[in-house]
């Protein structure tokens, strides 16, 4: 294996391993938000804002991984 091949494999592994936990967490957040809306439909706007914020926090982890991957790939 050449160094180039190893680098490509590492880049692929970085993003693959890195997005596992954020995706699970985003699913979990959406699930509990939907349950909350189902139980109490009047609170939808409040729940939605909080859900989007929480998703943005969880998504930030995936974005950090993406930034690392982009740095590995393009430098």
């Amino acid at each position: 294996m050449t160094a180039e091949m190893i680098k490509n494999i590492i880049i692929g592994l970085t993003i693959t391993l890195g997005v596992i936990s954020p995706s699970l967490v985003i699913g979990k957040i959406a699930k509990s938000a939907l349950e909350a809306i189902g139980r109490n439909p009047e609170a939808e706007t409040g729940v939605r804002t909080t859900m989007i914020l929480a998703i943005a926090f969880a998504e930030a982890i995936a974005i950090y991984v993406l930034v690392v991957t982009l740095i590995l790939k393009f430098t």
Binding site: A60, I63, L66, V67, L70
Partner: peptide, 16 residues
Amino acid sequence: FSFGFRLFGNIFAGEV
């Protein structure tokens, strides 16, 4: 850094 990297990552990834 959380603010900076979140915005940068999203927009730069979109351009790529």
